[in-house]
Amino acid sequence: MLSRLTDFDRTFDVLDELRRQMDRVWNDYDGSWGVTRSTTQPLSTASWPRCNVLDAGANLVVTTEVPGLSEKDLDVSLEDGVLTIAGERKPTELEGYAVHRRERPALRFARSFALPMKVDAEKTSASVKDGILTITLAKAPEARPRQISVKAAS
């Protein structure tokens, strides 16, 4: 009898989960403009700036969204196969303005990535353009993809 009751409770768990998921769908979707809302949720410094890592054959490319930062606000370092991006976004200093909305806080950040393969530190470059930081890491020769030609067996 007791076990049945617990089963019964779990039935509602499933419904609760469904409701939570539906809530999430609606929260993420702003019907009026067909736009997802996720970017206006509070910033977490653990995941700022957001990074994409691409494998471009001979290179590993890390792109990061760093709006408002220039090269002097950023510190990129490579040590023991760990790439670290650090920096600081200073607060927007405005004298005599009242604040209506603040979604772009000032923050200090540092993120590290253990790289999946050996890279050549000498051939690493980084640049910032339009608030996007692009770091290009040249893979070490042994880590590059190799084309293996197939010979016809006679």
Binding site: P67, T92, V99, E103
Partner: peptide, 23 residues
């Protein structure tokens, strides 16, 4: 399309909208 993060300010002369639009 996503909604960019914004700050909105006001003083006696103007409203100021600041938006993060990297890329």
């Amino acid at each position: 399309a996503i909604r960019p993060r914004v700050d909105v300010f006001e003083n006696e002369r103007e409203y100021l909208v600041v938006a993060d639009v990297p890329g």
